[in-house]
Amino acid sequence: MSELLYHMIPAGPRPVAPFSHAVETDGFVFVTGQMPTDPAAPDAPLPEGIEAQTARVMDNLTIVLDGIGLGLEHVTMARIYLTQFERDYAALNALWPTFFEPGKLPARTTIGVTALAVGALVEIDLIAKRP
């Protein structure tokens, strides 16, 4: 096993807890779950609705991946956490494929939770693989 590499992306979202944006080992990159906060205005109100929050989370994940030379095409697995699972699951499913190339969706688990940091409706973490 190779040494662990801890990544903090200077332009990345401000962490809402003590963590690295990503940790890498043996070509795998584990990206911490991101929130729908704006890196340019981290104290601004969150976007309204599941679609807008999911888009902001994916933008934040892309910032982290870009900061280590990867993109969404390198994602192998995603975990999605929803606070309003029954209400938001269908809307999330309709939006999800738009972030990836057709026919190249990562493996995925979606979990209903009672609450998320900063009052978010959605949080997503990723596992990516270096080519």
Rank of each mutant, 00 (worst) to 15 (best):
G33I: 03
L72D: 02
P106D: 09
G12I: 02
T110D: 12
F19G: 00
I80L: 13
L116S: 08
E123Y: 09
G69R: 06
P102E: 09
A94P: 03
V23N: 00
V16P: 03
T32R: 06
L65G: 00
H74G: 01
A44E: 13
G69F: 10
V64M: 06
G119A: 08
F19I: 03
H21L: 00
A94M: 04
G67C: 07
T54L: 14
A41R: 15
T37C: 12
G119S: 06
K129V: 13
I63C: 09
H74T: 03
P42A: 00
A17P: 04
V29L: 15
R56Y: 12
W96R: 07
L61D: 10
E123L: 11
R56D: 02
N93V: 01
A17W: 11
V29E: 05
I68C: 13
R87F: 03
L61T: 03
S20Y: 15
A52S: 14
I63D: 04
E73G: 15
P42V: 02
M35H: 11
L46V: 08
L46E: 09
D66C: 01
L92C: 00
L61F: 08
H21N: 01
A128F: 10
P39A: 01
A94S: 07
A115T: 14
A107R: 14
I68G: 00
F30M: 11
F85V: 01
F30K: 02
V113C: 08
D43F: 09
A22H: 04
L121Q: 12
A11N: 15
G112D: 11
N93E: 14
D38H: 15
I124M: 14
E24M: 06
H21D: 15
M8F: 12
V64N: 02
G71T: 14
T37I: 15
P15L: 00
Q53P: 04
S20A: 15
A115C: 09
P15R: 03
A120P: 08
T83R: 04
E101I: 02
A22S: 05
T98W: 01
M58K: 05
V75E: 04
P36M: 10
G12L: 05
A78M: 15
R108E: 12
D43L: 11
